[in-house]
Design a binder for these strands. Sequence first.
DNA 1: GCAAACCGGTTGCACTAGAAACCGATTCGA
DNA 2: TCGAATCGGTTTCTAGTGCAACCGGTTTGC
Lengths: 158, 158
Amino acid sequence: MAHDSSRLADFLPYLMSVTTNAVSDMIAGEYRARFGLKIPEWRVMAVLGDAGPQTQRSLVGATRMDKVAVNRACKVLEDRGLVARSPNADDGRSHHIELTAAGKAVHGEIMPLALDMERRLFASLSAAELKDFKALLARITARVAELEGADAPKELTR
Amino acid sequence: MAHDSSRLADFLPYLMSVTTNAVSDMIAGEYRARFGLKIPEWRVMAVLGDAGPQTQRSLVGATRMDKVAVNRACKVLEDRGLVARSPNADDGRSHHIELTAAGKAVHGEIMPLALDMERRLFASLSAAELKDFKALLARITARVAELEGADAPKELTR
DNA sequence: GCAAACCGGTTGCACTAGAAACCGATTCGA
DNA sequence: TCGAATCGGTTTCTAGTGCAACCGGTTTGC
């Protein structure tokens, strides 16, 4: 289908981008169609369902999303009645966010679908290949963090 | 640093997204800082420098970008005098787009930097691991295309 | 040879995502 | 204890991205 005589087609960051976008678009489409949820919203629900109630701050760490993105996702989920905020007695600035009964029900539907999609997407990879692939991703991420620290000596690592 | 007790941290599409974004952000920052180029613009220059003059249409295929993104990138590059458009005698609707002398000079600086960054980013991977990693990405991309064809029976594959 | 369909390219518009400014609450230091 | 710095969270502003409608030019079918 593609001619791809260009070296761009061998540039690894480009290949990663193409593959990841393809995977993300597919998953995003599925969630939107079946639950009307976007990926940020889904991520928040996944973390809340698995790790229990927590503040937006800790969701930022767990999802690696921007705090604005987390805030917006929480607001949407709250408006839909999937999560609820209760005041934090220890710290008046933040709230605890937790799944409602409806949210838990959706979470119970969503996670099997997620795992099934993951299984279907990566069905052609052996268990060993999957393991290696994850390990490589982790190493690359660590390497980027390392380089960022070195390349940006005067600013925060974000 | 991270606690990550959540299953989200094992969800492969999420891991791919985190890693790819880290790599992309790093590269985008580098190009912006050194050349004032964004990734779409850089991609167009890479293809033009490697595969020679061509139409926007063929750039869309080579870069896998939206035709609007290609168009805007070309316009920016043209305004900076890095590419030039010459009328296409065969088809009055399109032009041939090619690097100018200045564009070729920038391309000559940009490609070594790109390859150097690639080398630094993936220095911790052996040649064999790199090869396997690329092969896995290709297989996953192919798999997504396959599933999209199956899952979207009534609409275009986009 | 002309109207309709089509195609490359362009423009306009809605939506998303991140940056920075902002607010109330909390902590730190003199 | 009081003022400054900090922090969690929210709002606002702006840049980027993709879709859809659009415009000229080209091909197709009658």
